Computed example of a mutant assay.
Amino acid sequence: MHRSYQPLKPVTNRYLQQRWDQNNYENHRRKVNSALPVVDNKGARTPAHVQLKLKKLQLQDERLSIIDRDNRLLASRLANIVCSRGLVDHHNQYHLRSLNADRRREELLLVGRQNQAIYQRIMSRQSEYRRQLWLDDWQRAERRRDDISRYPRGLTEKQRSHRKVKFAAVEDSERSTSCSKTDTDRSDRET
């Protein structure tokens, strides 16, 4: 093997030179493998407070505690429902009350007073219409109409019969007699 090795420089013993060169090469490879970079090319280390995020953990704990509290309340309510044999409290003990009721009442009173004042003004005024003249004119017109008409007006009202017809459910015999009476009444009227 040493016979095939060709060193770069002339040497007296090729075998020893090969061993020295091999040893130097292995030392060099070891140093290359264990060498550290001169330039720090690693990323910046994230701070512990950013990695851990304590605020997020705190909010999560608070949310879980609220959920646990709500679950306990629901469980106690369900237990009360089971123990109460299904009775439901559906009566509201509060009365609805408007926050604007006082103002609306004052406005209503104000409108009522204004309406009363308008009514008093209207009632205190004398009428501009001459009602008595109108009544006299109407009576004159009625007298003329009665004088002109062929048949007097009050006569037809006196001639009407004041019989009342019963429409209640009656027996068949009464129904037949009432039918015959209405037929005779019609024949009397026609004559």
Rank of each mutant, 00 (worst) to 15 (best):
G86H: 01
N92G: 14
Y129G: 04
A35T: 03
M1A: 04
R45V: 15
R186P: 02
Q60F: 00
L16P: 01
A168Q: 08
R45K: 11
A168G: 11
Q139F: 12
H28N: 06
A101L: 12
R19A: 05
M1D: 04
T182L: 13
N115G: 01
Q18V: 03
V82Y: 10
D146Q: 15
Q126L: 05
K55T: 10
E107Y: 00
R3T: 13
R14P: 03
Y119A: 05
I66W: 02
E157F: 15
C179I: 15
G154Q: 12
R125E: 11
Q60E: 10
V11T: 03
Y15C: 09
Q60S: 01
Q120P: 01
R77F: 03
R29C: 09
R189W: 11
L54F: 01
I148F: 12
L108H: 08
Q22Y: 06
V82A: 14
N92L: 14
R145L: 11
A169V: 15
N115R: 09
L59F: 06
P47E: 02
A101S: 12
D147V: 04
D21V: 07
Q120N: 15
R105D: 08
H28E: 03
D172P: 09
Y15Q: 08
V170G: 03
R153K: 12
V111F: 04
S4M: 10
A44I: 13
R97Q: 14
V11R: 05
A117F: 05
N100T: 14
T182W: 10
L74Y: 00
Q58C: 03
Q126S: 08
L87G: 06
R145S: 12
E26R: 05
S173I: 02
A35M: 06
W134F: 14
E26P: 00
K31F: 12
R143N: 08
R121G: 06
N33L: 11
K166Y: 12
